[in-house]
Nucleic acid binder design. Structure first.
Lengths: 108, 108
DNA sequence: AGACTCGATAACCATATAGTCATATATACA
DNA sequence: TGTATATATGACTATATGGTTATCGAGTCT
């Protein structure tokens, strides 16, 4: 249980991964991939973001290991690397819900 | 299981929480609190960060609901709000370890 | 080859924020 | 009351990064 303290180098790496999830646009992209593999054009449609913008976000997500990609002809298909993204988001959402609940009780 | 898609407003809130964890210094502070309640001076010592800097980081962590505080005399004691931080970090660390393992295999 | 499409990249700007220094606020104590 | 200590806050700078526009490169089709 009691994990060892992380070195400053390890903290840097962990922080970098969290940073990849610390952008609404990137979370939106990940959501778009939840249903399955999508190419960039489909992600553009689904999210309404700009093309260059999405391309950069995908690069960040790929560098952080949250998505994998596959080229097919002229297009690139992206997919979630695993389900950790949702475990992480569900934990965060759980916190938000708990908080909302507390707020509601305060004002009840 | 299949959580509904989040609204852009919800994405913003989730991203904000991740952003609070997306800084090595803040992760370090959270680590310092793992063993239990600490006042700001003790956190300064433990982390080696500047006073004003730590104070601002603590404000962010508190706003995000990761830490709670208690004033006692002239000092303020901070503690972890719950164990979610470690669940989140352990998930991230697990990813890093898996990745390191894959890299090792590639170079083996 | 030439035209077209998809996606990545570079240049640029605007904004956000980590870090620092100086100062303010609040409590304790002589 | 005056002084010292602990923490918070404001001002400022340097850096990082999200978004946009323009351009590039690769693959496809005629």
């Amino acid at each position: 249980m009691a994990a060892k303290a992380l070195t400053s180098d390890q903290l840097l790496h962990v922080a970098e991964r969290f940073k990849a999830l610390a952008e609404p646009s990137r979370l939106d992209i990940l959501q778009a991939l939840k249903a399955g593999e999508r190419n960039v054009g489909e992600i553009l449609e689904k999210t309404g973001l700009g093309q260059a913008n999405v391309s950069k976000h995908l690069r960040v997500l790929h560098a952080a290991g949250f998505v994998e990609r596959r080229k097919e002809g002229v297009s690139t298909y992206y997919r979630l690397a695993d389900n950790d993204v949702f475990r992480l988001c569900e934990l965060m959402c759980g916190r938000l819900e708990k908080e909302a609940h507390t707020r509601k009780k305060l004002f009840a």
